[in-house]
Design a binder for these strands. Structure first.
Length: 568
RNA sequence: CGGGGUGUGGCCUAGUGGUAAGGCGUCACUUUCGGGAAGUGAAAAUCGUGAGUUCAAAUCUCGCCACCCCGACCA
């Protein structure tokens, strides 16, 4: 490919408003162009990378028995009504009407389509298990697209669906897919990828893992142990609570005046937040109830845990209720139809706390759970804090890091097969609903994530397995006959040897060519110049290390073979 | 959906009431050319959009739109 004809431009200036490195470099190096909020076109170099990512994914999915299919983007409302998701999913689903006024949706995921495809053609347990997958455009009307290809509204995704007769079979296959995913990310050249336990969200099912590339630009908070392999999304993470010792004393009513917040009360009484109990209020708009969540003062409520516990969306509010004294709420039975009280496990056995007195302007000191109030039950609704002990190994400490979700896997159970009436006969002739797993990888996000992980101040550094071209052929002084002739020879030789070559045929300065090759992230640069040709040599520069190697023209192919092996 | 911000040639930016400016890029020619070369010349903008105020609006006022950032949200 001649760069003079390559569609796209490379710029020195950083586009305004761009924060993420991958966003900046993909724009500046001519890989992507934004069409509107969260929607991008891919220019030729980006498509070349994407095809390589797809090839890796296809190979690994085929290796574990996957069969590639293609579901439609456009689907009728009826299909989504069968699973119940037409109403349970909100405005992130694009909806439209066709010319006959039928309600249609644009696919954001394809569980329904996959069950629809197979439910009448798979009839026997003998045909299970199987896995089908597709690489297809997904549309999601994200509330906030951001950071270039990291979070978009239209993107290409590999999604796979497996069908099994029983849980053991799904468990086994789930682990196989997990391993395949790690293989995929490794082949794509990503290094800091971990799998974390996660919330299954709208997908349903209980077991879910997310694959996270650890990087500061990440949108998710992850809890990882510094000693063992425990890792979980903050949404579901657990850790051992630190406790503090204190001997019981008689309770004491204290006038705390206008001091309502934990911070103010602590300052007033000269105590630490972990010696208090705070009340955090939420509202359930569906069932029209208030929730008061009691939790130790130094901790925060994990709203995802709360939502999963209550099985309903929760909204944090400043409470306004006749039976509740805002700012001075303390543990007690409220005995109101519309008030739910929850006690976090951080309060179990806690002694000597300062709690609200349920009367203005008072708090109670030396309050002990079990002695002064016994809740029916304690629940886990707290956010993990950095430094807490790991629940898995018991001795490590957890830290919190940021990650980009580059894939996820779910055990769906029979949510879709039962709601959509897919049955097969088992070995006893009984009808059963197969159980399903589903497995996704966002390909555009992988592309951007690789750039996030692999770049420097000059630009992208593509791992050679996914680079749009492996070699940047960079003649200097193309007006020199010898250079022109040698470059043509080398170009031909390289292409015959199966290398992908980006040929910088422009009459621009050396600096411009070098800068472009580095910005675009091409792994190997070959410079052909009057200087190098004096010794019948060319100069090879590795993008990753900057290492320069002089190489006799005749030994070029042999040398490249070695280098590709090292880089791969 | 809440908060904040920005819209000026393809890109980056200056311009706070009085002739739309500079850099990058593009085109032509000359010289140069192993780290984003130099000179000369040229093309390219109804200043996001609509209304209003004014003798006069990129600039002031109001509405709308788009985009960016933070949060909420997110298979």
């Amino acid at each position: 490919m001649k760069i003079s004809k390559l569609v796209g431009e490379r710029t020195k200036e950083v586009p305004s408003g761009v924060i993420a490195k991958s966003h900046e470099y993909l724009l500046r190096a001519g890989y992507i162009k934004q069409v509107c909020n969260g929607v991008f076109s891919l220019l030729p170099p980006a498509l070349r990378v994407q095809k390589k990512l797809e090839k890796i994914i296809r190979e690994e999915m085929d290796k574990i028995g996957g069969q590639e299919v293609l579901f439609p983007v456009l689907m009728p409302k009826e299909l989504w009504e069968e699973s119940g998701r037409y109403s349970s999913i909100g405005s992130e689903m694009f909806r439209l009407k066709d010319r006959a006024d039928h309600d249609m949706v644009l696919g954001m995921t394809h569980e329904e389509a996959s069950v629809h495809m197979v439910r009448n053609i798979i009839k026997s347990y003998d045909q299970l298990p199987f896995m089908i997958y597709q690489i297809q455009t997904k549309l999601r009307d994200e509330p906030r697209a951001r950071a270039g290809l990291i979070r978009v509204r239209e993107f290409i995704m590999k999604d796979a669906y497996s069908f099994h007769t029983n849980k053991e079979d799904l468990d086994n296959y789930y682990e196989i897919v997990k391993q395949a995913y790690f293989n995929i990310y490794k082949r794509m050249g990503m290094k800091n990828v971990v799998s974390v336990k996660s919330d299954s969200g709208m997908m349903g099912g209980k077991i879910a893992d997310e694959f996270m590339l650890i990087t500061d630009i990440g949108e998710d908070s992850l809890v990882v142990c510094d000693n063992c392999d425990y890792s979980a999304n903050m949404e579901v993470a657990e850790a051992i609570l630190d406790t503090y010792e204190s001997k019981e004393e008689p309770t004491e009513l204290i006038n705390t005046g206008e001091n309502k917040t934990i911070e103010d009360v602590c300052n007033l009484l000269k105590i630490e937040p972990n010696q208090t109990c705070k009340a955090v209020c939420y509202y359930l708009s569906k069932s029209k109830k208030y929730v008061i969540a009691f939790i130790r003062g130094d901790l925060e409520v994990n709203e995802i845990k709360l939502r999963n516990l209550l099985k309903e969306e929760v909204v944090a509010i400043s409470i306004d209720h006749p039976k509740i004294v805002a700012g001075y709420i303390g543990p007690k039975d409220f005995n109101e139809e519309d008030i739910i009280t929850l006690y976090d496990i951080s309060l179990k056995g806690a002694k000597n706390l300062v709690v609200g007195a349920n009367a203005e302007p008072f708090h109670i000191a030396h309050f002990s759970f079990e002695r002064d109030y016994i809740p029916e039950t304690f629940v886990d609704i707290s956010k993990v804090k950095e430094g807490q002990k790991c629940k898995k190994c018991g001795c490590g400490h957890v830290k919190i890091v940021r990650g980009i979700e580059i894939g996820n896997i779910f055990q769906l159970g029979n949510k879709y097969t039962s709601s959509m009436h897919m049955t097969v006969h088992d070995s006893n002739g009984e009808e059963i609903n197969p159980i399903m797993g589903c497995y996704g990888i966002g390909i555009g996000r992988c592309l951007a994530s690789i750039v996030e992980e692999s770049s420097d101040e000059k630009g992208i550094i593509w791992p050679i397995a996914v680079a749009p071209w492996q070699i940047y052929l960079c003649p200097l002084r193309l007006d020199d006959e010898n250079v022109a002739k040698s470059t043509e020879e080398i170009n031909k030789l390289l292409e015959e040897s199966g290398y992908e070559v980006l040929f910088d045929d422009r009459n621009v300065s050396a600096g411009s060519k070098f800068a472009d090759s580095e910005l675009m992230g091409i792994p190997i640069r070959i410079v052909v110049s009057p200087r190098s040709l004096q010794n019948n040599e060319v100069e090879i520069t590795l993008r990753k290390t900057g290492e320069k190697i002089m190489c006799k023209k005749g030994e070029l192919i042999k040398k490249l073979e070695e280098l590709v092996k090292i880089l791969g």
